[in-house]
Nucleic acid binder design. Structure first.
Lengths: 230, 230
DNA sequence: TAAAGACTTAAGGAGAACCTTAAGAAAACC
DNA sequence: GGTTTTCTTAAGGTTCTCCTTAAGTCTTTA
């Protein structure tokens, strides 16, 4: 039984809607087109969605209203799509419950990357809360308190460092490429300089070494990425 | 049971159609000729296709219509073939659901390479995420951990060696020419010296031989390339 | 059976990938 | 608005990979 990831596309312009559906289909997900706010609400009541792409200019019921309703009843992530979003409106949307926004005109690569990024994060969030702690060797991460300790001693990590470490511990055997790490830890699809990641990894290592200088927790796989050393 | 890859060729000119079918056949896939839009639709309804090559100038039903129908009902990748494609039309086609385009006059090498490339991408997307391991005899590749083991013992490969081995195991019966391997494993179309590949293969063999000196995993097909030895 | 062509193997150097430190830029905090 | 913390960029040094060369071995063919 294959698990299908379903994305609801709410956009009144037929061409744009179709374009978005194509992008989604090509990424391996299942799109469903809705052309008005009211139609969107019907789909949202009927079943659960993994992600909603929402245009703000809609006939019937405005995008803002749809967004507010989703936020009130549901925890489905929403990406806003709109032509004109000044900074203030953006902030307002995010407050109301939007997770991200894409401004028109957008390009295919960008949309695709954003969708991927959100689904990944969402899945992580959904998986992790059940287990409130992650451990590896003598490292222990408390996901609720967002604290990290090694050998029982608490260590202080920055937000980025913490996120990277959580990701590594979430799949101890997996090799994470730098691109993997950027996509999962950074907000937007942002491919920073590889060196940025080197520095973060280096800093994480040296903090871990404060407690236990002998143990090499993070392994470098040349030409591939990083992995916890088992 | 051999898995056949089927490609539908929609092109009204008989000579060109035949030429395309030959190229496809020589690449090891199974072509089916269709000479009008309506004929193409019949084939598309009847069975599933791995790829569609679509001319835009067609009798009966235009290529654009065929493309739109495929996009709406189906997720089959489509490569457009056409004489006149200005930049705007290209973008429009891509929007409607085309995955790539080739402009006439085309050369055989190019068509062949594009087809291969699309099928590879498509198969990667479809196959790899579902199965996280590849096996052949006693070799086991864990695609997440990016590790290779033979007879249960883990072996250490460099990034290039690993990529080559993954490719070989992904199609155990296929003979990979050196050019194949270069195209798939290297980033840009980089045709290194043939001997470069010889060296890589040699290194892979000797690493595998560390664990099991009697088994010859990789076979040399004289004048052609390499293949896993079954 | 010799010669040509195709493949194998070993070794060295160029350069890519990586690590570390330090300083400038940006963000968060007070 | 200024201070502190965090993030990114830059530079220099180190390590490891990959490509090439070149000599040796095996196949095919004339």
């Amino acid at each position: 039984m294959v698990e299908q990831i379903k994305i609801l596309v709410v956009e009144d312009d037929n061409d744009i809607n179709q374009l978005l559906c194509n992008i989604i289909r090509n990424s391996g997900y299942v799109p469903q087109a809705a052309f008005s706010g009211t139609e969107a609400m019907l789909y949202l009541e009927k079943e659960e969605w993994d992600l909603v792409l929402l245009d703000l200019m809609l006939p019937g019921m405005s995008g803002e209203e749809v967004l507010a309703t989703i936020a009130a009843t549901n925890s489905t992530p929403v990406i806003i799509i709109s032509a004109k979003l000044d900074q203030q409106t953006k902030v307002g949307m995010i407050r109301t419950g939007a997770d991200d926004y894409i401004t028109k005109p957008f390009d295919i690569e960008e949309v695709s990357a954003r969708i991927d990024s959100h689904l990944r994060r969402y899945q992580r969030i959904n998986k992790l809360p059940s287990m409130k702690k992650l451990t590896f060797k003598d490292i222990e991460i408390d996901l609720e308190a967002k604290t990290v300790s090694a050998q029982g001693k608490e260590l202080s990590f920055t937000a980025r460092e913490y996120e990277i470490l959580v990701l590594l511990l979430s799949s101890p055997k997996k090799v994470f490429t730098k691109k993997n790490l950027f996509e999962s830890v950074w907000e937007e699809p942002f491919y920073g300089d590889d060196n940025t990641m080197n520095v973060h990894i280096s800093n994480i290592r040296s903090k871990l070494a404060l407690v236990n200088p002998n143990e090499k927790y993070i392994e470098t796989i040349w030409g591939m990425g990083y992995r916890l050393k088992s």
